[in-house]
């Protein structure tokens, strides 16, 4: 197996898939603004993506904040810059780790669930059945997940930001005995509103990407139970890759 050829194949399939995902995006955007509005389904998906991700988000955020504080404290101590820990934690969480970690977790949890559910509906002809009952499956199935993803990701990212900063506080103040007041001062003095906002914009973009990619993978599943498995794996891999790659470009653009 030639690794260069493999890489080339991967890039080609990635870009052609991206094109088809963008087509689905156009149809979805059109359907969002056409009645009837799927309020009940959207709410259900918001609970599914948002509320049910909270426990995992909580654990991830608190440990990330803690390890961030631990590593930067011991590292910065070498040149006497321990006082910067609070700032490092606050900036890393809001600008970078909050949105990206939230995105990766939701991709693994809700994205996989979306692809598996829609994939099963495809292979058991439930999507065809929707069509015969004069219901547009993109409107009924994808629009609610799309809206829920776009709204819940920023909400979850805020939670990750806050819990992460609290985790950093516990280590810096609780474990290393830094002053309580100076931790909060260091957090707030250098944190700008744009750090938080740009982080949330990234999170919103990730939410849209996860829903869209996972729905795409599920919606166009082929080949029975095996196909559903492939769609689910594909959804998680493609969403995670999209998050990590787009994160670089979004950051370069937003935080000029």
């Amino acid at each position: 197996m030639n690794p260069i050829a493999e890489l080339g194949r991967l890039i080609i399939s990635f870009t052609s898939e991206l094109g088809r995902v963008l087509l689905l995006l156009c149809t979805t955007l059109k359907q969002i603004f056409l009645p009837p509005f799927e309020l009940k389904n959207t709410f259900k998906q918001m609970v599914e993506i948002g509320i049910k991700s909270l426990p995992v988000i909580f654990i991830t955020a608190v440990f990330t904040g803690m390890v961030l504080a631990l590593q930067s404290y011991t590292g910065f101590k070498r040149f006497g810059a321990e006082s910067l820990v609070a700032t490092v934690v606050a900036l890393s969480m809001t600008r970078e780790l909050g949105p990206v970690l939230t995105g990766l977790i939701v991709a693994g949890r809700a994205g996989a669930a979306m692809a598996a559910e829609l994939g099963t509906m495809r292979v058991t002809e439930q999507i065809d059945a929707l069509e015969t009952l004069a219901t547009n499956p993109i409107k009924y199935l994808i629009v609610p997940r799309f809206i829920a993803g776009a709204l819940m990701l920023p909400a979850l990212a805020i939670v990750t930001d806050i819990i992460g900063i609290l985790g950093g506080y516990v280590i810096t103040v609780g474990l290393f005995g830094a002053s309580n007041v100076s931790y909060w001062n260091r957090t707030w003095n250098f944190l700008e509103m744009t750090d938080i906002l740009n982080g949330l914009i990234k999170a919103c973009f990730f939410g849209i990407a996860i829903s869209l990619i996972s729905c795409y993978k599920g919606f166009y599943t082929q080949g029975g139970a095996e196909g559903v498995g492939k769609a689910t794996t594909g959804a998680v891999v493609l969403s995670s890759m999209t998050i990590l790659i787009s994160d670089y470009f979004l950051s370069a653009w937003l935080f000029k």
């Binding site: 509906m121 439930q126 065809d128 059945a129 009952l133 004069a134």
Partner: peptide
């Protein structure tokens, strides 16, 4: 399609909805 009804070979019931919600879907 509103003039049609279709029974699928594998029934194709919506598994997130109850039986009556399936029947009354349209």
């Amino acid at each position: 399609r509103r003039r049609f009804g279709m029974l699928f070979q594998g029934a194709a019931l919506f598994d997130s909805l109850t039986v009556w919600e399936n029947v009354a879907f349209a």
